[in-house]
Design a protein around this nucleic acid. Structure first.
Lengths: 326, 326
DNA sequence: TCAAAAGTGTTATCCTTACACCCATGT
DNA sequence: ACATGGGTGTAAGGATAACACTTTTGA
């Protein structure tokens, strides 16, 4: 028996919407029932080996078709191929097809809008509520996550220490980059509804009706899309520090507070205002445009622009995160 | 017409051999002519969607089969799918198959050996002679590369500045991480024999006999393997700085000079001895074992070991590269 | 005794962190 | 006047880079 392979492309398209780090989601329409899915997913499209010259071109094309805007910054994330966690398209194709999905990260300025039906901007705190530490340690970690993880870990020292490190218990520090590791831990511990669904499918059965969701554990997504999203968020948080990628999320002109709020939303931590400004100014990648924005509620803020022309001429640093002590 | 997709896995297996950063290469045997290839390639194997649960398991399996040793550290690099640069397996399969290759980076300690026939450890300076700046700026850059690039760039300011930045001309600094960008520049400029070959194949013809190689431009490899190797080397050079990956290349015990020579071989730059030691000791990821190695030619050196047990308990830093000024 | 490589000490400089304070606007 | 957010100055501590120097071996 030969199993054929189908390559799918998924896009994590990130933008700031209403002050929150958000990601473009779709609710696909089931071809049989004509119902739109209750779960959200990422924009997803097949890669046609005959027509498409490169993955990236294929991605840009189908995203433009689905969402009606053209992507700017795009980078390949990872290729996912685990059996049992593959995309639901596997059922749709002829016979047994294995779906390999190549995940991409795309960044869009806030102004970019989508008028396409069935697509929406969702703040990613919907999917990963434990990742937002801007207001200090989220209560739900100790209320809802830690107790269940302790039950799962039992006497296993390895499991306990893994949970302790990833969720910053007992004075171990919060590492905002390890989004994927945390999601995978929750998945393994059975706290992600996706785990139960994948298990049911593997046993040949129809997925059971989802149980009542525990809001603290975040909205699940279609297929392995929450895993791809976690990969994207972790990668973005890391990249922020060594490449000037934040500016891909900003409009043409912005205040330094806008910039700080964007970095905070992505990194999920609060930053020290004065030191953040210094860090930004030291890179010399922004310059004032000589005008101010008066709609700030206080003193008008100077408007800056990103000096994109320097990108070609330099190794180009990122931003350090001068954390705000609690 | 449907074009089928085949997924191939390629492995860049890195180890120190005879003091040089080396990579495991194979000379595949042509199924028709029974001749072994004149060009080297990377260990490469098909991914069987029916049998293999994950890419990584498939990779470990075929590498063990081809090279007779088991991989340790493994990480996914990138998935390559450009038409016209795909693997030669495309001709071998039934009809028109498009080969997508998922590249992996693996690190092995020097002690690891391969007894398999047709495999060998090749220093990567064979493939990228311009990447070794340990003895200062390699003369071949200005002798052989820059003149040809200038011809290629012509009056295009963009091309000229790209070449200038990547090859550190006119006081622009050498950025050792941009291995892939440099290779792609040479490919575009037609300085990589692979470019001519891909062009010939695209026009339906049989690849012309390779012209006499210009040694300064490095040995070409099969398919797009030199591109994958460039990706691996760039990634490894970057990762060195923020994750403690060098230790994956070291034996159980090593001197600080061994460690420095390894970092220098990978990064391709000379480091300042005293400051390197300080940097290493500050991470506290190594500890002396209380014995010395007398075979150094001078004063015996203290032996150290990597405190791997700390990896689980820490965010784990890398090494900065305290450059040696010329 | 000398070459070769290991290993130590010290200083200037820069970056980060932390703290305190002033400025310009709307209500 | 005062609340709100924007913006500046400065000093302590730590990391890096650059320098010179001592120690221990083999030939």
């Amino acid at each position: 028996m030969t199993t054929t392979v189908v390559i799918g492309l998924s896009a994590v398209i990130v933008a700031m919407r209403e002050g929150e780090g958000s990601v473009l989601t779709v609710r696909p329409r089931d071809t049989r029932t004509e119902q739109t899915s209750t779960l959200e997913g990422l924009p997803f499209g097949p890669f046609d080996p005959h027509d498409h010259r490169t993955f990236e071109l294929a991605l840009r094309e189908f995203v433009t078709r689905q969402t009606r805007f053209a992507l700017g910054y795009v980078e390949q994330l990872y290729t996912f191929g685990d059996k049992g966690r593959d995309a639901p398209l596997a059922d749709v194709g002829a016979g047994a097809a294995r779906v390999i999905s190549v995940g991409y990260l795309a960044l869009a300025p806030a102004a970019v809008d989508t008028q396409a039906p069935e697509t929406a901007w969702s703040p990613w705190s919907r999917f990963f509520p434990w990742e937002d530490w801007r207001g200090g340690r989220p209560g739900l970690i100790d209320q809802a996550i830690v107790p269940v993880l302790e039950g799962w870990a039992g006497r296993s020292a390895q499991r306990r220490s893994r949970a302790r490190l990833l969720f910053a218990q007992d004075s171990s520090p919060w590492n905002e980059e390890r989004v994927l590791d945390r999601y995978e831990l929750l998945y393994e511990a059975g706290l992600a509804p996706e785990a139960a669904r994948d298990r049911d499918r593997a046993q040949g059965g129809v997925p059971a009706e989802p149980e009542a969701l525990i809001p603290a554990l975040g909205q699940p997504m279609i297929s392995d899309h929450r895993r791809i999203l976690a990969t994207a968020l972790g990668r973005l948080r890391g990249k922020l520090k060594y490449r000037p990628v934040v500016y891909e999320l900003m409009g043409a002109e912005f205040t330094l507070s806008d910039l700080q709020r964007t970095v905070e939303a992505i990194a999920g931590v609060a930053l020290h205002k004065q030191n953040f400004r210094r860090v930004v100014e030291r890179t010399a990648l922004v310059e004032g445009v000589g005008r101010t924005d008066a709609d700030t509620g206080g003193r008008p803020a100077e408007l800056f622009r990103f000096r994109r022309e320097l990108l070609a001429a330099r190794p180009a640093p990122g931003l350090s995160l001068p954390l705000l002590r609690e």
